[in-house]
Nucleic acid binder design. Structure first.
Length: 120
DNA sequence: CTGTTGACTGTTC
DNA sequence: GGAACAGCCAACA
């Protein structure tokens, strides 16, 4: 599998995440069969166009915290707003991080097949 | 070829 | 629960 294929699989899988649900980079990587490539899932989402149909905002870190992407950037803020807009409760931690609850909004199918069934 | 760099993760205090 | 590490791996200088 080359990089382009990996990215395509990542995009296809992210598109399966239902509205109002969230999952993690690592889980997307596991679903496409490359569990050690979580960082590259982030890289794949980073280069998306704004008008893309990929719901990138539904992907957060394994702890449920929205990665800041560096001080002075507004990416995390926009992601939090996008999630709130589709019904996901985002709380703000003491340290100013945005965090979602996997207990109420998590989406972690074991396999790609289960993911596709869930997405219907 | 050798570091360094990440929209990351798991383990261990 | 959070901080400190150690893995991780493709891209890039």
């Amino acid at each position: 599998m080359d990089l382009a294929e990996f990215y395509e699989k990542v995009y296809d899988t992210v598109r399966l995440v239902p509205q109002g649900k969230v999952t993690s980079y690592g889980h997307i990587a596991a679903l496409v069969g490359m569990p050690r490539h979580s960082r590259h899932v982030g890289a794949a989402l980073k280069i998306l166009h704004e008008d893309s149909d990929v719901p990138w905002q539904r992907i957060v870190s394994s702890t449920g915290v929205i990665s800041s992407r560096g001080p002075g950037t507004t990416g995390a803020q926009r992601q939090a707003e996008a999630l709130e807009a589709e019904g996901v409760h985002v709380e703000t931690t003491r340290m100013g991080q945005f965090k979602v609850s996997f207990a109420t909004n998590g989406w972690f199918p074991r396999t790609l097949q289960e993911a596709q069934q869930d997405a219907q």
